[in-house]
Write a protein that binds this DNA or RNA. Structure first.
Lengths: 220, 220
DNA sequence: TTAAAAAATTAAGTATGCTTAAATTTAAAA
DNA sequence: TTTTAAATTTAAGCATACTTAATTTTTTAA
């Protein structure tokens, strides 16, 4: 059993790689808000324990064992998020932080009960896929990043990045919840700002924000 | 905010004192399964941080601040136990261990939602009183320890000691759940063994076991 | 292709919460 | 009351997961 810290590292590495980016020491350190030295240190330990493939200066990847742990933690995180929101009525922008704490202290027995209670859900409140008991991910709907959308088309929100509470709060505020529709009105070439319109009104989204919203084109 | 370890120490001290026993260094160490040296160490830290009154060789007691933390943790523990059992259908003898983990990672916001969901319950599945948001304990029903019961009388179970999973499993096995009736058939003077009878059958309980069951006399 | 910049690692040191062993204080028994 | 036993504390040391500062390796750009 990995420690709390080790679980966090494994999750971070998994998510970096899943996002198609490389899991560099400094990117891991940045995500976990620790020094590069701490990350290097931990990568060595994780390697020694067979959770990652790690060669000095050559980057890191997960072993099957490490991937299994990462998926287990993601499962716990995402089931908690959904449970807290659906059953205990916590807000969309509150569940991430709470789940982050509970996930490390949740037995397999308990998480299976939660899974059962929710009837084996496939996606969490932010659209992220929930691995099943064996670590198998459900197939996701096709989506593109909002910063790759086109003018004058209608989209629906498939997924949002849930790693930033402030961002989630902002999405909620402008009515950008899961499965809601909006139109891309204009994209400014100069800086990539995107003007969107939904039932809450019209908003300008910076490309940095838009990168964190994943959408699918829909008919009018 | 106390750390996880500190919360555990405060809870242990509170429970020792609540039980009318003194909270000696070694009793705390025994409960928490650490060395006496570790307990001494921690008592010094807790004292420095204003959670306990501690004088070398003179024992320890909680300050108002320490008591508040202990009651907060007990609240979280007991609400989780009830929630896990009632909502997520975990077994009577499973909830203690799970709650022990979750209690430390539960925000006030979350525990208030759980309290609300359960409609502000007053007792946990083992009969222990649940402190309210302000730390006020509900009034308990009168009870005596089973080892002080009398022959040929009928009792009902008001509370059991929930600190030992094996014991709880045994209680469940012999039908000794909360609010169930049984009769004390015989008490052996030689060693204090108590013969009890309920709808599951007749059993001999050692005085060590009987000390962990709290009962109230009822009419036939 | 080499110099500078960036990334990664090593080294030294810290806080927390443990351990065992030795020393001290208190309590109990002779 | 003194000796012995029990409880407690102190001392020294360990593992985990951090920190900053210095060093090394890799990458980028001139």
């Amino acid at each position: 059993m990995p420690t709390v810290s080790k679980e966090d590292y494994l999750k971070t590495i998994y998510q970096r790689i899943e996002e198609g980016e490389q899991a560099s020491t400094s990117s891991i350190a940045r995500t976990l808000k620790v020094s590069n030295a701490a990350a290097t240190d931990m990568l060595k330990k994780l390697s020694l324990q067979g959770f990652v493939n790690y060669k000095k200066y050559k980057g890191v990847s997960l072993t099957a064992k490490g991937r299994k742990e990462a998926l287990s933690l993601l499962r716990r995180h995402r089931l908690w998020e959904l449970f807290l929101m659906k059953v205990l009525k916590l807000k969309w922008d509150e569940v991430h932080k709470e789940a982050e704490l509970l996930e490390h202290k949740t037995s397999e027995k308990l998480i299976d009960k939660i899974d059962q209670y929710l009837n084996h859900p496939k996606f969490d409140p932010h659209g992220a896929p929930i691995p099943d008991k064996r670590g198998v991910l459900p197939k996701e709907k096709k989506f593109i990043r909002l910063d790759a959308a086109k003018e004058n088309k209608i989209y629906t929100i498939v997924k949002v990045n849930d790693k930033d509470d402030e961002l989630i709060r902002y999405f909620a505020e402008i009515g950008f919840k899961l499965n809601t529709k909006f139109e891309v009105k204009k994209i400014f070439n100069i800086d990539g700002t995107i003007t969107v319109k939904n039932k809450k009104g019209q908003f300008n989204l910076s490309p940095v924000v838009a990168k964190n919203i994943f959408v699918r084109e829909v008919r009018k």
